[in-house]
Amino acid sequence: MNALCTALPEQLRLLLVDDHRIFLDGLSLALAPLCPDLHISTAHNAATAEACLRQTAFDLILLDLNLPDMPGLDLLQRWQQQGHLTPVAILSASDSPLDAQAALHAGALGFIPKSADGDALRAAVTRVLLGEVLPGPAAARLPLTPRQQQILRLLAEGLPNKLISRELSLSEDTIKTHLKTLYQELDVHTRTACVQVARQRGWL
């Protein structure tokens, strides 16, 4: 434990954002040995987290993916757009490589599973505080064929089916078949939603 503490400042301010109060209590206890003067603030929803940010400068935010008033990734993206410079790591019950990929794509510096034990949690938080980017769970191959990935990228550029078919030398019917598969994979019904969800998952 001492090896971790010597690498960090003696004083740190962390913001923990999660709607499970018992989990927050346990997390605070697990993080207590990080440094001699550790100040931990907690928020149970996005609104409270934003209020905390307006009042205090934090060294790191640990953010849950699922909040009652806003998805964690949406909140993270809003902070990015507002120019907040506080590092953010996602702390989630999910161990999905796709969720980790989406979190890093949205600007998180790390993806830490809630299943991590105390030592692993402190080590991960220390690495993020020292400026490292944690890769999260091993990246899985996208559940798309190379052709579907090409079509998805062209779709994101706003090309209609006719131009996509011309670009890839495929018939429009073939493009429609691939799009149908993409819609089913992403559980969407429109081109706009397809692109939006693909971006949220870090596929674009």
Rank of each mutant, 00 (worst) to 15 (best):
P137N: 06
L152Q: 01
D117E: 14
A103R: 03
Q101R: 12
K114G: 06
D95T: 13
P143R: 03
L155D: 02
R122N: 11
S94T: 12
I151N: 00
G136K: 00
A100E: 09
P146E: 06
V128I: 11
E167W: 00
N161P: 01
D95Y: 11
L170A: 10
Q101E: 12
A140Q: 13
V133Y: 01
V88K: 00
R127A: 15
A124L: 12
S92I: 03
E157K: 06
E132Y: 06
A123R: 14
R147P: 09
L130I: 14
T145I: 02
G107Q: 02
I90Q: 03
V128S: 02
L104W: 11
L134A: 05
D99I: 07
A156I: 14
E167G: 01
D95M: 10
S169L: 03
L144I: 03
E132I: 11
A100Y: 02
L130E: 10
L163R: 08
L104N: 08
A93Q: 12
S94M: 04
E157P: 01
L170W: 05
R127K: 13
R153Q: 14
L104A: 04
S96Y: 05
N161Q: 07
R122T: 12
P135T: 14
A123W: 15
L134T: 00
A102G: 15
I151P: 00
L109A: 08
A100T: 05
P135H: 12
Q150G: 02
Q149L: 10
A116V: 14
L142A: 08
Q149T: 02
L98V: 14
V88Q: 00
E157R: 07
V133E: 04
A123D: 12
A103H: 03
P87S: 05
A140L: 15
